[in-house]
C-alpha cells in the first residue's frame, strides 16, 4: 500500500513540476503583454513603432522606438560580422584540424570565455577599450562608447556560442561522407568546404539563429558601452541606445503605471516576440534536420 501511494504521489509531483515550468512561460507572456498593450491607450501604434523620437522624460514626452530598434540592429549586425567568421574558422579548426590535446585546451578557453559575466565585459569596455579607441582613431571617434566598442565586447560573448554549436554541426556530418570524398582523391580542405559544410548547413544556420537571438537580448554590455544616445547611427563610431539598454537603464527610475512604464513593457514584448520567432525557427530547423 505504502509503496503504491509513494508511486502515485511521485507521479503527481513530477507532473506538477512540469506544469509549473509551462505556466512560467505563459505567465511571462501574460504579464508583459497585459502591461505592454496599455501604452497604446496613450500613444498610437504608428508613433510607437515608426517614430525615432524616444524622449520619455521631456515635458511633452515621446515614445518612438525606431531609434532604439536601429541601435539594436546596428550592434547586432556588427557583432555578427565580427563573431561569425572568427567563430566559423575556430570551429573548423577544432572539428577538423586539431589534435586531442590542442582541442581540449582550446575548448577549455572557449568554455571560460562563455562564463565571463557580461557586466565584467561591460566594465572592461567602459574603462579600457573606450580609451584605446579614442587613442587609436582620434580623427573618427568622438566618443569611446559606441557601436564598435559594444560589438567588440559582445563578440566575446557570442563567439564561444558560435564555436561550440558550429563545431557540433560539423561533427554531426556522417564520417563516411568525409571518407568517401577523401577516397576519391579530394584533399581535406576541399572536403571541408565542398562536402562537410554543405551537409552541415542547417546545423550551422541553427547556430547562427540561436547566437543572434542571444546577441539581441544581451543587456549589460550595451547598457554600459553602446553610448546611450537615442539616435539612428550613421557610422559604427556613433553611440546608440539598443532596446535592452533602454529597459535596463530606465526601469529603475520609472513611475509605476505611467505611460513610460507601459512603453518599457511594450519594448519587453517586442524583445519577447523576437526571441520567440528565433527560437521557434531554430526548433523547426532542428526537427527538419532529424527527419532527413
Amino acid at each position: 500500500m505504502r509503496r503504491r501511494r509513494l508511486d502515485l504521489s511521485s507521479r503527481v509531483l513530477v507532473t506538477i513540476a512540469a506544469l509549473i515550468t509551462s505556466t512560467v512561460l505563459f505567465g511571462i507572456f501574460f504579464f508583459l503583454i497585459s502591461d505592454g498593450v496599455r501604452v497604446f491607450g496613450k500613444i498610437s501604434f504608428a508613433d510607437f513603432f515608426f517614430s525615432a523620437r524616444w524622449y520619455p522624460t521631456y515635458e511633452d514626452a515621446e515614445y518612438g522606438i525606431l531609434a532604439l530598434l536601429s541601435g539594436t540592429l546596428a550592434v547586432t549586425g556588427l557583432t555578427l560580422a565580427i563573431s561569425i567568421p572568427l567563430g566559423f574558422v575556430s570551429a573548423i579548426f577544432l572539428a577538423e584540424f586539431s589534435h586531442r590535446k590542442a582541442h581540449d585546451f582550446l575548448k577549455l578557453i572557449f568554455e571560460l570565455m562563455a562564463g565571463i559575466p557580461s557586466v565584467v565585459l561591460g566594465s572592461f569596455g567602459l574603462k579600457y577599450v573606450s580609451k584605446w579607441l579614442m587613442e587609436f582613431f582620434p580623427m573618427k571617434v568622438w566618443t569611446g562608447l559606441n557601436v564598435f566598442n559594444a560589438s567588440l565586447m559582445l563578440s566575446i560573448l557570442a563567439m564561444p556560442y558560435f564555436v561550440t554549436l558550429i563545431e557540433d554541426a560539423l561533427k554531426a556530418v556522417p564520417v563516411d561522407q568525409k571518407e568517401a570524398s577523401l577516397a576519391l582523391g579530394a584533399n581535406t580542405t576541399s572536403t571541408i568546404f565542398r562536402v562537410i559544410i554543405p551537409q552541415a548547413r542547417s546545423g550551422i544556420l541553427n547556430a547562427i539563429i540561436l547566437g543572434t537571438n542571444r546577441i539581441i537580448g544581451e543587456t549589460m554590455v550595451v547598457l554600459m558601452i553602446a553610448g546611450g544616445a537615442t539616435m539612428i547611427p550613421r557610422s559604427i563610431f556613433d553611440p546608440v541606445r539598443p532596446l535592452t539598454a533602454a529597459i535596463a537603464g530606465e526601469m529603475g527610475e520609472v513611475e509605476l503605471g505611467s505611460t513610460h512604464y507601459y512603453a518599457l513593457f511594450m519594448i519587453g514584448v517586442v524583445l519577447l516576440a523576437i526571441s520567440l520567432i528565433f527560437t521557434v525557427t531554430a526548433m523547426r530547423l532542428k526537427r527538419g534536420m532529424r527527419r532527413c
Binding site: 513593457f265 519587453g268 526571441s275 528565433f278
Partner: peptide, 22 residues
C-alpha cells in the same frame, strides 16, 4: 513542456527581470 523550455532558454534575461518586477 519541451517547447516551453526551449522558448524560456531563448528569452533575454532583462525580460525575466520585467516579469519578476511585475
Amino acid at each position: 513542456v519541451l517547447t516551453a523550455n526551449n522558448i524560456l532558454a531563448g528569452i533575454p534575461s532583462v525580460v525575466f527581470g520585467m516579469f519578476g518586477l511585475s
